[in-house]
Design a protein around this nucleic acid. Structure first.
Lengths: 196, 196
DNA sequence: CCATCTTGTAATCATTCGATTACTTCATCC
DNA sequence: GGATGAAGTAATCGAATGATTACAAGATGG
């Protein structure tokens, strides 16, 4: 209804825009997203988006940073404080799966990584990736080979979710096999989430 | 010089365009690439590109198919015929590394995978991925867990190359550590190629 | 109560892009 | 040797897009 004024502080508005931008950039990529789409997703006008962020590139950079912060925060929240039931890797893995259920988060990260050669975006993407690496090494205490496996599995998961092969698994036998040999016994859980 | 006519059969021209398109789509992505850029990279005019492929989307789809065929052909060429020195996985891995030295090939594949939700492109990307899977399973004879590892490592390699973290490794200690724990003893070889 | 600042929009502009049309040039075949 | 078709381009068009400008409306403080 918006009975009264829809006015909000600029800071709150920026947060709203960033949340909307994660979804839109994730779906259409950096070049494929117009500032007008983001504006409409956030429920405001296009010129205001430009004024709050200066440039489409700046908007994407801040969106990418925002997403990376969410990723790091999710991992940190999954780290054990004292007694534990599951291994650190298992906990991190499950936290990651929950996070990337949000297709926007998943795909915004991937789009960022693929713009490595862009002079403005590349450094932000690389820095974010390195932050994750340091966190796994220094805070989670994983050994090099554990880090390798964790990151590699994560990237394969990303690709399978991004392509949408999980959806094919319902009808295509090979797709089901592929999902099975990637996710093992957890395949049912993943497919249930992917189709949701 | 082009002393005489630069005329070429339409089929040959299509191949030229596809080769140029791999590089351009790889660098700028699907939405970020104009048909005019592809045309100029191929040395012809923009309307001719459109006429030969009908649509930018069709051009991308055929470029993606072309790239996937190159990937499959590279893998098949690396499969052993009879006696062998290295394991199948090692051979495939090395063949893959050589192929994705071409940034265009690498990134065109990744861009394709990330457009999984696009109704025209998504099916092509999924089908290509499944073809690779079937090849590893049926022709290379890899076990499920081997396939899992192979694909996961491949995807991590893709991401590291796409972000360009390898270039940072020369100056950033953590980036060097990350490359080390991913590529192990082969790190020197990869870095040499990445900077080339 | 009015001056000032903040939040926000409508209108508009210059580019860019994908696609179409009309045309030219070369080859080929009867 | 002219007709037919293929190879290729220049010119152009309409739509979309990022950005700017000018302006409206609500808050805030003295």
């Amino acid at each position: 209804m918006s009975t009264r004024s829809d006015r909000i502080s600029a800071d709150e508005r920026r947060e709203q825009i960033l949340d909307a931008a994660i979804a839109v950039f994730g779906e259409f990529g950096y070049a494929g997203t117009s500032t007008d789409r983001v504006a409409r997703a956030a429920g405001i006008s296009q010129p205001y988006v430009v004024r709050l962020f200066g440039t489409k590139e700046q908007l994407f950079i801040e969106t990418l940073r925002h997403t990376l912060e969410r990723l790091l925060a999710t991992f940190r929240a999954a780290l054990p404080v004292d007694a534990e039931e599951a291994s650190v890797e298992q906990r991190l893995g499950e936290a990651y799966l929950r996070l990337v259920e949000d297709r926007g988060v998943l795909l915004t990260l991937l789009h960022g990584f693929m713009l490595g050669s862009d002079p403005g975006i590349g450094p932000v993407a690389r820095d974010g990736f390195l932050q994750v690496f340091r966190m796994l090494r220094d805070e989670a205490g994983l050994a090099p080979e554990q880090i390798h496996r964790f990151l590699a599995d994560g990237m394969l998961i990303n690709t399978l979710l991004a392509t949408g092969i999980g959806v094919d698994a319902a009808t295509d036998r090979d797709a089901a096999d592929l999902m099975e040999c990637t996710f093992g016994e957890r395949v049912g859980e993943v497919l249930a989430r992917a189709s949701a």
